[in-house]
């Protein structure tokens, strides 16, 4: 295969690609600040949970998973650290809650919530997104900045965070905040809900990472810089290029893949 390295003069220059603002500064800051905070909350929370690790998944007498198996805690330094776990948890819980509240307010004030809140079609469309993501369906449903599944999960995760804090307070001060404890069905129920929320956070994290990998570098990097480059211009077949058996991808200088392709071609 011959790589096309020069654009024939007859081909008009493509429109200039621009990088457009996708994530505002506030969203990016609070997103990235939340990552270590939530990590510390889960890490210290598991140190607390270790002291009374009673939950499992079971149907009747058949237990198919215990939270957590022996050998889970020690390699992660989670065992015999209850006091330190509590100390970290009740320190960083403040920062986690404050960051979450600020983020909620921020989306309201900036109008960002319009991109995030599900609409009446979101539940139905999220199944289509899922089918698309699992390669069961060719087309993704139409979307704005976020697709239906993203809207549901990015709104859901904020609600989950709020409930993590509320159930946390319910078991932190079950007497002084007993209204909350009662709402969550009592002390033990609130503790179980708090744990389930934590597991949901971990599930969200895993899926989030997979989706970010799938969406690619430009999408990920836009959460760092705020900007994302326009998609590559549409590929156009050119009469003159047909001889080469290839189609030109207009090179605007920003396409990092092009030189690699050339090198590959050279090696071949």
């Amino acid at each position: 295969m011959t790589a096309v390295t020069e654009r024939p003069a007859a081909i008009p220059a493509p429109e200039e690609r621009r990088a457009r603002l996708k994530h505002r500064r506030g969203s990016r800051w609070m997103h990235w600040v939340n990552f270590p905070l939530l990590t510390i909350m889960i890490w210290s929370g598991l140190r607390i949970y270790w002291a009374n690790d009673v939950y499992d998944l079971s149907i009747g007498s058949w237990t198919f998973y215990e939270f957590f198996p022996d050998g889970f805690y020690e390699p992660l330094g989670l065992n015999r650290k209850l006091a330190k776990g509590m100390a970290w948890h009740f320190t960083f819980g403040w920062l986690f809650a404050i960051n979450g509240v600020l983020y909620g307010l921020y989306t309201l004030v900036t109008g960002e919530w319009r991109h995030l809140v599900p609409d009446r079609r979101s539940i139905k469309e999220s199944f289509l997104v899922l089918a698309h993501d699992l390669y069961l369906r060719k087309e993704a449903p139409p979307q704005g900045r976020y697709n239906a599944a993203q809207r549901l999960s990015y709104t859901g995760i904020l609600i989950l965070g709020a409930f993590a804090v509320l159930t946390g307070v319910a078991i932190y001060k079950p007497n002084q905040a007993n209204l909350l404890t009662t709402i969550f069905g009592g002390y033990e129920s609130a503790r179980a809900i708090h744990f389930i929320i934590t597991m949901a956070f971990i599930a969200f994290f895993v899926i989030h990472i997979l989706q970010v990998i799938k969406a690619g570098w430009g999408n990920f990097f836009s959460m760092v810089t705020g900007y994302e480059l326009d998609p590559k211009p549409k590929v156009t077949a050119v009469d003159g290029a047909a001889d080469h058996g290839a189609v030109t991808t207009p090179d605007d200088g920003a396409n990092n893949e092009q030189p690699e392709n050339e090198q590959e071609a050279d090696r071949v």
Binding site: A19, G144, L229
Partner: peptide, 21 residues
């Protein structure tokens, strides 16, 4: 929704490729 987002994107702040780099 797509149209609105694309319009918003087109109207939003943008950088040249060099600025983006």
């Amino acid at each position: 929704r797509q149209a609105r987002y694309e319009a918003e994107l087109a109207a939003s702040k943008s950088l040249s490729v060099d600025e983006f780099r």
